[in-house]
Design a protein around this nucleic acid. Sequence first.
RNA 1: GGGGGUGUAGCUCAGUUGGUUAGAGCGCUGGCCUGUCACGCCAGAGGCCGCGGGUUCGAGUCCCGUCACUCCCGCCA
Length: 594
Amino acid sequence: MHSYRTHNCSELRETHVGQTVRLSGWVHRKRDHGNLLFVDLRDHYGITQCVTDVDSKAFQAVEAVRAESVICVTGTVVARTEDTVNENLPTGRVELKIEDFEVLSAAQELPMPVFGDHDYPEDMRLRYRFLDLRRHKLHQNMVLRSEIIASIRRRMTEQGFREYQTPILTASSPEGARDFLVPSRLHPGKFYALPQAPQQFKQLIMIAGFDRYFQIAPCFRDEDARADRSPGEFYQLDMEMSFVTQDDVFAAIEPVLAGVFEEFAQGRKVTPTPFPRIPYREAMLKYGTDKPDLRNPIEIQDVTEIFRGGGFGLFAKLIEGGAVVRAIPAPGAGALARSFFDKMNDWARSAGYAGLGYINIKDGVPGGPIAKNLGEEKTDLLRTQLGLGDNDGVFFAAGRPGDAARLAGMARTKVAEELNLIETGQFAFCWIVDFPMYEYDEVQKKIDFSHNPFSMPQGGLEALETQDPLDVLGYQYDIVCNGVELSSGAIRNHRPEVMYKAFEIAGYSRQDVETRFGGMLNALKYGAPPHGGIAPGIDRIVMLLADEPNIREVIMFPMNQQAQDLMMGAPSEVHPKQLRELHIRVVLPESAKA
RNA sequence: GGGGGUGUAGCUCAGUUGGUUAGAGCGCUGGCCUGUCACGCCAGAGGCCGCGGGUUCGAGUCCCGUCACUCCCGCCA
């Protein structure tokens, strides 16, 4: 007989009755009746009930073992009587009568029970991650993550993509996020950087003629965390392809994403391909964001012209100064108490905005200060344009176009949440396309890239030379699911003369471009295929499919919000000898010295 | 760097307008229990009320500061 097990803890059935078997696993739960004792034995696969009584020589030892100890039990599989069958367990029609018992590894008293579905403080869960990972939900999330990644690999490979590895130690890139730096021992004073993404490498792979690349790629960015953004490191399905247009990239990645989501949807609906494509400017107007949640049925409309020169003085005056007014319909809210509208206004003010105006229509009669001052005729115009019913409400966000759109977008989400309008149980995908190449940087008072500077401008060199830079669009796209930005992508700029011009508009000289991106630029001068790609975030895909609100729930060993690994104790101080080897001297900030 | 929330037993939480001895459930320890599967019953141990200062006759409760965790803004081409 095998030293540890003949079966796993999810295998035994009535067909095994009478056999002598051996199981190993963790003591999930004990139920001690004094002279009769049940042990739920758990492993990765499942749970099997083991039983012993006072007549057994193993009884005392089993009674003494603590939960989460690892044990090995040998005994006979017996059928349970009809009244003691547990239909909730796949193994619930049988149990193991313990004849031999061994403790393979005793557990101390637990800081955090594994059994049950209690909530525990996150710092404790992270410090004892190995215990938390034993718990069913988290354990299943990790299995799901593995299956999703396997499915992605299969789907990419079936489409002719090949997986290639790219360096982890590379050069610091001058654009983008803060780099993690690694000091060089052999080259005093010089540093490697961990890749923020394999962006330049995958373009070089295309230039090297490999045609279709993908990688489940680790990416490192030294930026602050969010609930959907783990600090430090994350994974992307990084992909790139040659001789393609934007539509070709969509056609390649859509079936992979749709396929993976359908495979793991468990009854939830998935947007059929092709996914809707929404131009950036339309998204900003209708949804107030470039990552709209299309499960939310509310659409924002511009109502500036109705308020222009009208009876509601505050808005009319703002409009004179260049402001716009955006309307956010709130279906059915008109019948709600005034406190609902006041609460929304308070919420907007607490978010740092001047406030949120409203009209509440009750039994066909518009109420509130805006309706009163605007007058009946214009209020009717609003009702017609927005299609408001007899008991609907509407909120107004007024301000500079960017601010008004942002507030309207947040209000759209807030209203839908408050009114319970978001249709759950589905994955609503869309592409956001036609991002502008440039935007005006109010702080630096100059034109700057709004997204990826390596994207190909629509219209190419001619567009850059003849159009207002702020009107130039890029072959640049995002894919969004349920309001979560899964990825940005682009058709790349593979022509050096277009790149020089694109950077010139943003204020970079030829010399600047060569200094900063010499390697890439050089490669483009020796025959580069037109190419493009995208890099959907793996962690966020798993988060959506696992229906988890926090990215740490789908990462095996995550860091906390302060980018610390509480289990391993990272980051940590190092021995002075290590610093000397690396030619590093630590200069602490004043605040850390005390 | 900034704003919000939380911090009471190992864990989850309650604790009234400031009032005498800070409670419950789970877990832990001991006892009883031969069909449980959230087993049950009895008893017990376990508290710098995050930390520091202040107001007060009196602070878990009020004020100021600080620390930790978390959510958000900035940041993330």
